[in-house]
């Protein structure tokens, strides 16, 4: 089963993807910080919603993002 890694509501109209802390295929545990997004003045860490393997990365540095957008997929254990 796959779990979506989505962007939470950050209360800013300008959100950009900053970086991935993990690579595709890496094992992750629920709650791990796996990506960082940027709003003007603040960085925000996005945490893994499930334990498994990062199967897909859909966002890349400097991509403009919207709330609820899927950043990647996690293949659950």
């Amino acid at each position: 089963m796959r779990a979506a890694l989505t962007l939470p509501v950050l209360g800013s109209s300008r959100v950009t993807f900053s970086l991935w802390y993990v690579r595709r295929g890496d094992c992750i545990v629920e709650g791990d910080r796996i990506a960082e997004v940027l709003i003007p003045g603040a960085t925000f860490d996005v945490h893994a919603p499930a334990t498994g393997t990062l199967a897909e990365q859909l966002a890349f540095p400097n991509d403009a993002l919207t709330p609820g957008q899927v950043l990647g997929w996690i293949e659950e254990e």
Binding site: R33, P40, G41, A42, T43, F44, D45, H47
Partner: peptide, 22 residues
Amino acid sequence: PDHPGVRVNGRRLVHIGVAIRD
């Protein structure tokens, strides 16, 4: 709004830079 912080007479007086973890 584009660069959080506070300016006075066009010059910045307060710098803002935040990180949110967990």
